[in-house]
């Protein structure tokens, strides 16, 4: 059975309008990796407060008693969870599973997902935002950095596609 998704151009239009509303209401674009940075910093702060406060990168998020979870991105990403769930429920796609190419094992897929996640997490900090915050939002406001990051992400993924083809095709 072929899974039914929304027409991609229509979905893109919807996503673009959501992004436009973020600009119109809050004066900023969408994001994702920043919310996980907030979550990490807040959790780490509970177990090692002083260590986080003196960290050159994380320290600014807890300076002056700030709570990093009380941020725009944290609430936005909670919404993403809810919105994704609603969409999956309406389209009959709620299912606990490991999605993987049949010629690789589920464990192989999970290992690759973990490695890919670590790289993406690290890269998103170095690049000051991920596909949502830096590439998509950056392009919409015509930020030079947004275009560069977008080209680097997609260019590298295309360049490495042959190397990692056995995971996907």
């Amino acid at each position: 059975m072929k899974t039914k998704y929304m027409n991609p151009y229509l979905a893109g239009l919807m996503l673009g309008l959501v992004l436009l509303m973020a600009f119109f209401f809050s004066g900023r674009g969408l994001g994702a990796s920043g919310a996980f940075k907030n979550l990490l910093v807040a959790s780490e702060h509970i177990v090692a407060a002083e260590h986080v406060e003196t960290n050159g990168y994380f320290g600014k998020y807890v300076a002056d008693g700030k709570n990093p979870l009380n941020s725009w991105l944290s609430f936005e990403i909670l919404g993403v969870l809810v919105g994704g769930f609603i969409s999956g429920a309406l389209s009959g796609r709620l299912k606990i599973k490991v999605e993987h190419f049949p010629k690789i094992t589920a464990n192989k897929r999970l290992t690759m997902a973990l490695i890919g996640g670590v790289l993406f997490g690290f890269g998103s900090q170095l690049g000051r935002g991920c596909t949502s915050g830096s590439a998509l939002t950056g392009m919409a406001v015509l930020s030079l950095g947004g275009f560069i990051t977008m080209a680097a992400i997609f260019g590298t993924a295309f360049g490495l596609a042959y190397t990692f083809r056995k995971n996907w095709i």
Partner: peptide, 18 residues
């Protein structure tokens, strides 16, 4: 640099954070 690392993460992991 960040984009290159994210691109590798994309093709290896199959997702981006969002």
């Amino acid at each position: 640099g960040g984009g290159v690392i994210m691109g590798a993460g994309f093709i290896i992991g199959g997702f981006c954070p969002g």
